[in-house]
């Protein structure tokens, strides 16, 4: 257990460090990552630790600033998806079976929707900005967790006091806020964490496929440019494609550690064993 706690702590520390870096890092840099300071494709040097991109812009600065884009989208998606999932899943767990059935079929539908054209559609009409991308990703990511949360609420029915409250004429909202929230709340941390993980990887994949905004700074964008500029075929992969990839690996691992640790902690059967 202590080791599990340790894992969670490591994850939390890593995440905090990344978040602090994303927020404060850009202030400490002498460039915003958009100024052309060196020759295109300049290799790393004492001044520019990761060299320069194809326009001669500092890659280390882009890595630091890119954290904002990647963590930003993760945060936005995770917040939005968790909120929707909690509301939909929670209410579906409390609603009468026929209504819950309808809601769950909507969830099925969302899970089955073709994702890419939706993204192109949104990008074409609303612009491929961070917010729009986050909204589209969130609109698709909430569905799975909503099921999970509904299952949690259904399990809570068996404890009886929900039924008692309903028998006394409580509304669904009241039930959700007063009685179901203690059941739902613990589930939200892993849901949040998983949505954040999905968002980071998905957004980077979209950038790689050329469906993101190639001018908005994020780790995915960096890998995209490294890829289209053939960095993998030169030494540049080492300082252009590897660092943002590792940054993603680090972030996602940190999130996963936190998620696993909370799941372990919250699981009543595991807690017993302590």
């Amino acid at each position: 257990m202590r080791a599990g706690l340790l894992a969670g702590r490591i994850g939390a520390v890593l995440l905090t460090a990344l978040a602090v870096g994303a927020v404060a890092g850009p202030w400490l840099l002498s460039t915003d990552g958009r100024e052309r300071l060196a020759a295109p494709y300049a290799p790393p040097s004492a001044d520019r630790w990761l060299g320069a991109d194809d326009l001669g812009r500092d890659l280390f600065a882009q890595l630091v600033i890119g954290a904002r884009g990647s963590l930003g989208i993760a945060l936005l998606v995770a917040l939005a998806a968790t909120t929707i999932a909690a509301l939909v899943g929670g209410l579906a767990g409390l609603a009468p079976p026929w209504a819950a059935g309808i809601v769950m079929r909507v969830v099925d539908l969302v899970l089955a929707l073709p994702f890419l054209p939706l993204l192109i559609l949104a990008a074409a009409f609303l612009g491929p900005t961070l917010g729009v991308r986050a909204a589209v990703v969130a609109a698709l990511v909430w569905a799975g967790p909503a099921r999970l949360i509904r299952a949690g609420v259904l399990a809570a029915w068996s404890r009886g006091h929900l039924q008692a409250a309903r028998a006394m004429g409580a509304s669904a909202w009241y039930l959700l806020l007063r009685h179901a929230s203690p059941v739902v709340a613990p589930l939200l941390v892993p849901v949040f964490v998983r949505a954040a993980m999905t968002a980071i990887v998905l957004d980077a994949s979209l950038a790689f496929l050329g469906l993101g905004d190639p001018t908005s700074p994020s780790w995915g964008t960096m890998i995209h440019w490294a890829s289209v500029r053939g960095a993998m075929l030169t030494d540049a992969w080492l300082w252009w494609a590897l660092p943002p990839g590792l940054a993603i690996v680090l972030t996602v691992t940190a999130l996963a550690l936190v998620g696993v640790a909370t799941e372990d902690r919250l699981n009543p059967t595991l807690r017993q064993a302590r």
């Binding site: 326009l55 050329g210 190639p214 001018t215 440019w225 500029r229």
Partner: peptide, 16 residues
């Protein structure tokens, strides 16, 4: 075009 790297970079420089 998002899928034309040269043009995207050109657009960025023109903005500058």
């Amino acid at each position: 075009y998002a899928n034309n790297p040269d043009r995207v970079r050109t657009a960025e420089l023109i903005t500058e």
